[in-house]
Each structure stands twice: as C-alpha cells, then as structure tokens.
Design a protein around this nucleic acid. Sequence first.
DNA 1: CCAGTTTTAGAGAGCCTTCTCTAATACGGG
DNA 2: CCCGTATTAGAGAAGGCTCTCTAAAACTGG
Lengths: 216, 216
Amino acid sequence: MARPPRYDAATLLDSALDLAASGGPAAVTMAAVAKSAGAPSGSVYHRFADRPALLSALWLRTLAGFHTGLLAALEGPEPRAAALAAARHTVEWSRAHPAEARVLRYGPDDFGRASWPPHATRLLREANARAFSAVDSLARRLGAGEPAKSPADGPADGPAEDPAAVERVRIAIVDLPYALVQRHLREGATVPEHALTAVEECAAALLCAKHPDRTE
Amino acid sequence: MARPPRYDAATLLDSALDLAASGGPAAVTMAAVAKSAGAPSGSVYHRFADRPALLSALWLRTLAGFHTGLLAALEGPEPRAAALAAARHTVEWSRAHPAEARVLRYGPDDFGRASWPPHATRLLREANARAFSAVDSLARRLGAGEPAKSPADGPADGPAEDPAAVERVRIAIVDLPYALVQRHLREGATVPEHALTAVEECAAALLCAKHPDRTE
DNA sequence: CCAGTTTTAGAGAGCCTTCTCTAATACGGG
DNA sequence: CCCGTATTAGAGAAGGCTCTCTAAAACTGG
C-alpha cells in the first residue's frame, strides 16, 4: 500500500552511532548522518522530527542495549555472583560494542537532553530509575547476607539500608568498571582484555571490605 | 609604549571555561567567548590564533590546575599516605573547582586535539607523561614495602614491577575518585561531601587487598 | 607633544547547518 | 490497471560560526 522504505530509522541511527563514536555528539549533524547513510537530508527528517529527536533516539537505543545485559546480571539469584557478573558485564559489553561504549562516555546533556521531546525525556528517566533500583536492591540483598551491624541506626524499613553501604556496592559494580573502560576509550584505544581481570579483582576487594573500621 | 590590554588571555579563558562547563566543548565558540567576555571578536583572535588554539589553552590550563595538587600529593614521603592523599585530592579539587572539573569530564579529543598546534600537543603529552610516571613510581614505592612475591616473574629491573599491581594502584587513586566525581557532575549536580569518605574507604580497601588469591 | 606599538572595534565574506517545501517515485490493494 | 500512500530526492532560505581585514584608539618613551 506504499513505497517500501530504503532508509529506516535503525539504519540512520547506525550512521549516527558511527559519527558520534568517532567525533562526539557535535559530529552528529543531520547533514552528516544523511551523507554517511547515502540518504538525502529529506529522508532523515522524514524519520526524525528534528535533531534533538535523532540524538535522543541514539542515546536511548544505546543505553537500552547496555542496560539489558546489566539488568540481567543484576537479577541473578545469588547476590554476590550477581554483583560480580554486573561488574564484568560493563567491561565485556564495552569490548563487544566499542562504538556504543564510546557514546556512553558522554551524558544525555551532551546529546542535547534539554531540547529532547517530552516522550524521550520520560523514557530516559524510566530507564535510569530501573537501573538504579536494580543496583539498589542488589545492594540490599548483599547487605542482608551480612551480620546486622547496629539496628538502632536509622529507620531500617525492610532489610538494613545503610546509604554508605549501598554507595560502596554501586561503586564496585558500576562506577569502577565504567571508569576503567572509559579511561581506555578516552585515549582512543580499545578496552584491553586485562581490564576484565582488573575489574574482577577490584570489585571483589570492594565487596569484601564492608566495615570502615580501619580508619588509617 | 603600547595600548594597555583590556581583555587578556586569562580573562578570555575564564569565559571559555564557563561556557564549556555549562554547555560542553561545542558551546565554546569564538563568538560566544567574545560575547561572554564583552569583547569584540577581533580581540579574541588577537589572543588566540584560531579556535583550536583557544581550546587547547583552555584544556591545558585546566589540566595544569588539577595536576599541581595531584603531583604534590603523589610525592609525599610515606607511600601509603601519599596514595590516600592523591585519591582525596581529586574529590576535594573537584568540589573546590566545579567548572574546571566539568571540563575534565571530557577528553582532549573533545576539545579538538587533532587540530591543536604542535606546541600544545607537546605540552599535553608532557603533562600526561609526568602524571603517569608519578603514579607509576608511587605504585613502585607501595610495592616495595610489601613482601616480594615471585622474583623470577618477568624482568624486574629496579623494584618489583607487577603491571597488574601498578594497575590496581592506578585504579584506586586515579580512576575510582575520578569516576565518583564524574558521576555527580554528569547528572548536573555538585560533588557531595560524602563522596570524599566513600573514596577514602574504597581506596584503602583496594590498597589493602594486594594478592588476587581469592578467586571467588 | 609626537612617534611607535599594541590593542580595540566591528563589518563582512565564505562556509556549514538546520529545517522546509515541492515534485517525483515506487509499491500494494481493489 | 490504476489509485492512494509512504517515501525518496534535492533545492534553497535563514541563521550561526570562523576568520580576515581595515580603521581607530590608547598608552609610553623620548
């Protein structure tokens, strides 16, 4: 009932991904995407209302690709194994998807979040909330296996929720792998294999040391 | 013997810093810097040959500001205290200099390193080499205090230099504090105070756990 | 007070980008 | 076979950015 599409949204986003990976968000211009995909500029505007719409789609698609594996790892049955798997996932996914990982170096603000359509802004908020709550609940599960420390310390609702402990878990399984990956990507290199073992060791060390009793 | 300057390089770089901190590298246009400083565009081009020259000056000035304190901390007499001081410095400096810290979120490539003048490229290489070697030598000093592990493992020239151990130190005192700081900055927030204690705890934990004998 | 030098001041050319608009095109259903 | 629709195709207006160029201005040493 209609002419078949030659340049669909996914294809155009692939071009946008390449441009963003090699030249940063600023390199993703509508003209550059069109040229890189071999399409006329009209076709790009046929798929995406404007540049913010394209940038938001690129960010959300990339983030979703990363989150699926991360969430799967975080929801593993055994808390400790799940934490280590999540830490590993960041490194492995970045090694397998270098272009996407380069995009996630930036933040949504760098991709013009301020001018995104409301729809995209909502999706971003939901995706981030989902990931954050998954990390949070894993941190709770990890804490539940430990001996309770001081029950009269704050309004512990469900299991004990020491914000500092949650923060430590978050550092071990999110920030630390992310930092290591980004260091290599920032230098223009790919993520080396030994980054994986480094992350495993460091995450294990951080998950072990729970009590900050050793002040010095 | 000449007309006194009204807009010197430092003032213009201050404007560029504000623009970069709030809008990223793309927001640092010659026109925007001129407007933000209240100067005509000619004055900007009088100080900086072209945009890459200005961007390189901005990056190098910002990096130098961060490096001075970092190098001072790394060169402390007692290795372990020096390592913890270095980790702390990243957080404290970022809290004290939010705009500069936002700039360092990016990499030199985002500030157009490919088109920098050779002079600037050389300065960058030197600054990075200095910082890297300071971390490296601190890692060596830290390792020297520990019991030697397996002397017949690689061409140990001076003190034992296990690349994995150096990497672990680098993660503890550079990557980890950087990651924590950038997480807050990426979200548009400032770095909270509790980030400092989190970094201290995590760095201490990582510096303690040296031997990767606990595989699981 | 003058000559010399640095700096301000801003107009404008050339290029690139975003976005719009019109026309042509290719396919499927009846 | 033909109509309706989704899509391609690309020209072009409007605006921003980089960079150049000319002229004026402001200060200092003699």
